[in-house]
Simulated assay, not measured.
Amino acid sequence: MATITTLLFDFGGTLDGPAHWLDRFLASYRAAGIEITRAELDPAFDHATRIGYATTRVVARFGMTDLVRFLVGHQFEYLRKSGPGPLRARLDDSGAAGRHRFVEGVTNSFVRETSIGLAHSREVVGALKSRFKLGIVSNFYGNLDRILEEARLDRFFAAVADSSRVGIFKPEPGIFEAALKKIHCAPESAAMIGDSLGKDCAPAHRLGMRTVWLRTASQNGEDASSSDPTADITIRSIDEVAQIQW
């Protein structure tokens, strides 16, 4: 078995905090006093995500706060039109100023949690940098380089494959291959670390990479056992990456 020389990380839900963005948005909505279920927020989350992917030229200049505010704004637009009746009524009754306060409340809550996650990951990848070449493979909006620079993480990564820049989205193999090519690494010498079995582990496994599943309390419907064939190793915290005996 080849020696692992390269670690590729997912970003959202992996490096920026141990939870899927949908679940973190849900918690931020509730912290802002908006009662909504995950099932009710899910279509608004997808709607805003699609808009973000379709407007890369606009989003590419955004840092984290502007990106989250952009996404939350489009989530609110969806919820005002197609959300549950009581929430639609509340958002209408709150007026433009009230809706602005809600958007800012959700945005600030989400960004605070993200900042904590990224600061912790900075310590983790900093400790790994002397042992491995590091890269990121992420479905993102074209501004991941800006986000990493803002978080002082950019210096740790030799390759960043942002789907909106590469033009290929996980789970397609090409986005992984783009990162491996940039970092000059064969698949069998690399490991992929991410919170999604379907988008991170399965495609990387098919390419011949070793895979690490970051299994947290919420996995966006993924409830496979730790013996899932696409995950060579299952961890509960990103801190455990440094302890893996390759």
Results as ranks from 00 to 15, higher is better:
128 L>H: 05
128 L>C: 03
131 R>W: 02
131 R>V: 00
132 F>H: 14
133 K>M: 10
133 K>W: 08
134 L>P: 07
145 D>N: 13
147 I>K: 06
147 I>L: 14
148 L>P: 03
148 L>I: 04
148 L>D: 03
149 E>S: 14
149 E>C: 04
149 E>H: 12
151 A>I: 07
154 D>N: 12
155 R>D: 13
155 R>M: 11
156 F>H: 13
156 F>Y: 15
157 F>C: 03
158 A>R: 07
158 A>Y: 02
159 A>Y: 05
160 V>D: 02
161 A>E: 08
161 A>P: 03
162 D>L: 07
163 S>K: 06
163 S>R: 04
164 S>V: 00
164 S>Q: 10
165 R>Q: 09
168 I>K: 11
172 E>F: 06
173 P>K: 09
174 G>C: 06
174 G>E: 01
174 G>Y: 01
175 I>K: 05
176 F>L: 09
178 A>K: 11
178 A>T: 14
178 A>Q: 12
179 A>I: 04
181 K>Q: 13
181 K>N: 13
182 K>E: 15
183 I>R: 06
183 I>L: 13
185 C>N: 10
186 A>T: 10
189 S>K: 12
190 A>Y: 05
191 A>Y: 00
192 M>V: 10
195 D>T: 05
195 D>F: 05
196 S>F: 05
197 L>S: 06
198 G>D: 13
198 G>C: 01
200 D>E: 09
201 C>Y: 10
201 C>R: 11
202 A>R: 14
205 H>M: 05
205 H>E: 06
205 H>A: 12
206 R>H: 11
206 R>N: 06
208 G>H: 11
210 R>G: 08
210 R>K: 15
212 V>M: 01
213 W>T: 03
214 L>G: 07
214 L>Y: 08
215 R>Q: 15
216 T>H: 14
218 S>V: 15
220 N>C: 08
220 N>E: 13
220 N>K: 15
221 G>M: 12
222 E>H: 11
223 D>S: 14
223 D>G: 15
224 A>D: 14
224 A>V: 03
224 A>M: 07
225 S>V: 07
226 S>V: 12
226 S>A: 13
228 D>N: 14
232 D>I: 04
232 D>G: 14
233 I>H: 03
233 I>L: 08
238 I>F: 09
239 D>E: 15
